[in-house]
């Protein structure tokens, strides 16, 4: 690349975890950090999908701000000083992970995604060796009506990746969000059994972007579900092409 001096507006300088870094305006904190090999945790974010900002795992401290900011949605600014891994943040992230485990019935040992689960990985990364919040044991069901896939609400963390990939990439808008608060659920069309959906194309993208065992292929036994993640980088291309 030719070493041209870029106009001053094209790059800005900032600090992430005491490292001086450069960034382009419009980039998010998460992107810039990743460019510099600083990986900020997260579960709802996925390259190529719109930003949701709901899991709250990617919260970071920005000096001068009295609130924690979601790094997936906050754009960088000149002179920004960001901390991504303070003891306080780690403690908060641990509780947030625990909340996800406590909210539904994640019984890892009998889950087809056991070992291939981003929630498990995140628990290990953040040092969650037990859940000190009371388990809520909700009575939630499981939808096996689709020929090829299964939706198990017990293992859903409401990251909504499936909803976004279905609407934004596949364009089917089969998956949506129903209800609200603690009762939110992933739905198909008018909350009908998945197998009866007229809009679902059975493309399977929702299954493979799902970070947990909530969306899986049928015919898999415990720990057998290997999600096909190879196409994930192309989601971004697809989105760019759409614009």
């Amino acid at each position: 690349m030719a070493r041209q001096k870029l106009p001053p507006t094209q790059t800005l300088t900032m600090k992430i975890d005491d490292v001086d870094v450069t960034a382009k305006p419009g980039q998010t904190i998460k992107d810039v950090a990743r460019d510099h090999d600083i990986i900020i945790p997260g579960l709802c974010y996925l390259d190529g999908l719109s930003i949701w900002g709901g899991c709250r795992l990617c919260l970071v401290e920005v000096e001068g701000m009295n609130k924690l900011l979601a790094s997936c949605s906050t754009e960088v600014a000149e002179g920004m000083v960001v901390h991504t891994d303070s003891p306080k943040l780690r403690a908060y992230r641990k509780v947030v992970i625990e909340m996800l485990f406590a909210e539904r019935n994640h019984v890892c040992s009998v889950c087809v995604s056991n070992g291939g689960c981003e929630l498990q990985d995140m628990a290990v990364e953040l040092g969650v060796d037990h859940v000190h919040l009371p388990y809520m044991d909700p009575d939630v069901n499981l939808d096996s009506s689709n020929d090829r896939f299964r939706l198990d609400h017990n293992r859903c963390i409401m990251c909504t990746r499936c909803v976004r990939v279905c609407g934004e990439i596949e364009g089917a808008f089969t998956k949506g969000i129903g209800g609200r608060g603690i009762d939110v659920r992933i739905i198909n069309d008018l909350n009908m059994p998945w197998g009866e959906s007229q809009t679902c194309t059975s493309c399977g993208k929702c299954v493979h972007v799902c970070p947990t065992g909530a969306l899986v292929e049928k015919g898999t036994a415990a720990a057998e579900m290997d999600k096909r993640r190879a196409f994930l980088p192309y989601l971004t291309i697809m989105r760019e092409a759409q614009r």
Binding site: V163, G167, F173, T174, K175, G176, I177, G178, I187, N188, D189, L190, N191, T199
Partner: peptide, 8 residues
């Protein structure tokens, strides 16, 4: 409007 949005 997609069915899922209406239901949502």
């Amino acid at each position: 409007v997609p069915l899922s949005n209406v239901y949502g």
